[in-house]
């Protein structure tokens, strides 16, 4: 299972980077979204996947063994919320940028470069 998830993470990364290299601003945003998904999936996979063992421990049990770790899921949840907010901002920003520059071609947006 981890193996396939690792492959998916890799595919997401390459797709995200590829989209970011495109000239259209909208594809840039899609690329960013894919990258954040890849990161979330990587955290989820990297912390170890445990099947059917929820992290609920009975009163009498003294040690924890092989239970799933709830923390990575909390991390992913936080990261999802943050990336959602930031992406919403980025979308509005690109919309405004396209309106004021008059093109969605990133190669044309070089007035502020050197």
């Amino acid at each position: 299972m981890s193996f396939w998830l690792a492959i998916i993470v890799g595919v997401l990364y390459s797709a995200g980077i590829y989209m970011m290299m495109r000239r259209s601003v909208v594809k840039l945003i899609i690329g960013l979204a894919l990258l954040s998904h890849a990161a979330n999936l990587l955290i989820f996979t990297g912390a170890g996947i445990v099947r059917e063992k929820a992290p609920i421990i009975s009163k009498f049990q003294e040690t924890v063994s092989n239970n799933a770790d709830p923390l990575p899921q909390a991390l992913v949840l936080t990261a999802i919320v943050i990336s959602f907010g930031v992406l919403a901002f980025a979308l509005v920003l690109t919309h405004r940028a396209v309106e004021s520059v008059g093109t969605d071609d990133l190669d044309q947006m070089k007035e502020t470069d050197t």
Partner: peptide
């Protein structure tokens, strides 16, 4: 985020 995830793993 990725670095933190791997470090935690």
């Amino acid at each position: 985020l990725v670095a933190v995830g791997i470090l935690y793993g």
